[in-house]
Simulated scan of single mutants.
Amino acid sequence: MSRSTTPKPGISRGTHTIPVTHDGATVEQRYHVAGTGPVCVVHPGGPGIGWDYLRMPALEEHLTMVYVEPVGTGSSGRLADPRGYDLATYTHFLHAVVEHLDLPDVMMLGHSHGGFVAQRYALDHPDRVASLILYDTSPVTDGDFWPTAVAGMERFARRHAVDHPEVARYVAGLTGRSAPSDDEGATQVLRLITPAYFHDYWGREDEFAAGRQALHMYAAPAWGEGPAFDVRAELPGLAAPTLVLVGDDDFICGPRWARMIHEAVPGSRLAVLDRTGHLGHIESPVQHAAAVRGFVTAVTGPAA
């Protein structure tokens, strides 16, 4: 990092709300601050999943985590036109949070779809990103991305069909066939297919069941319209130190896509978490935190 990301006094723990102008309207953007140390701005996935699934207590011991609650979810504001929930919109609201923090630059972590946002933001605002953690994400959602994810879900369903017959509904849940138009229905679908996002959900169900039932999904962000995501040609110009972090058994944004980012971004690090799905901070928190801490130490020095 070329400049300090030590928190300013104004970055206080707790929940904060800022007004953001978007398409001529004022929309509330909420974010949550926890932990101590250099500032790391965190964008969750989805689009449309409630931010708190991405809470990372192990990292809060070393970093000030600024968790963005994306527009269209939770207590953040809603867009008048749900077609507006696209990558440009999320990047716009993320920039508003970064500007409000009033730091010269920040560490940024994006998970899954939040990794799309983080990549786009780092490419558009290179002077504001001191370092970047791309966690279980991809540089592209081309014609091969979704068929590969569906094939991974189908393999998961075949493996578990005998002991857990409900997995027969998982592929339809992933692909949005008969997708619910309300938040309650979207949440039910997310909770239904959650085991597929773990390497060994049922083997450790006592650890993960409560978190599964706490998940929330908001329907409107799924209606966003925008161009296909593909930053592969731009990534070689990404100058920020970058960690690419992935679970080895992540069916949707797995090692294939992580290596694609790693090979494109000059000097990036790749960390593959063993026996881990799409939620390594929950399933393998020690491995996950060690990978991030090693990266932060390499970038900021041992005192981070």
Rank of each mutant, 00 (worst) to 15 (best):
I133N: 05
V20N: 00
R293P: 01
P255S: 09
T175E: 10
V299S: 04
T6Q: 14
P285E: 03
V39E: 02
D183I: 01
V33G: 06
W146L: 14
V244N: 04
A271D: 10
A239S: 13
E60D: 09
R269C: 07
I133F: 00
P38V: 06
P104G: 13
M108L: 15
R293E: 10
P147V: 08
A228C: 05
G185N: 00
G211A: 11
A186Y: 00
V292A: 02
F251E: 08
A219W: 01
G224R: 00
R177E: 15
P165D: 11
V20S: 06
S4D: 11
R3F: 11
V265D: 00
T17S: 15
Y197F: 15
D142R: 04
D52T: 14
A130Q: 09
G37C: 01
A214T: 09
H113M: 13
H125W: 10
Y90M: 09
H111L: 06
P241V: 04
H16S: 13
A290N: 12
Y135Q: 02
V71Q: 01
P236I: 03
V171H: 00
T91D: 05
A222S: 14
V27D: 00
T194W: 07
F198R: 00
Y67E: 02
C253T: 15
L174G: 05
Y53C: 07
A258Q: 02
F116C: 06
R128T: 10
T91F: 00
D200A: 12
V189H: 01
V272G: 05
P255H: 07
H278E: 09
H62D: 10
W202C: 09
P57Y: 01
R232L: 07
Q29A: 12
L190H: 01
G203N: 10
M108P: 01
A196Q: 09
D206T: 11
T242Q: 02
P57E: 06
L101M: 11
V140K: 05
E234A: 14
D127Q: 13
E207M: 11
A298S: 14
I193P: 04
D182W: 02
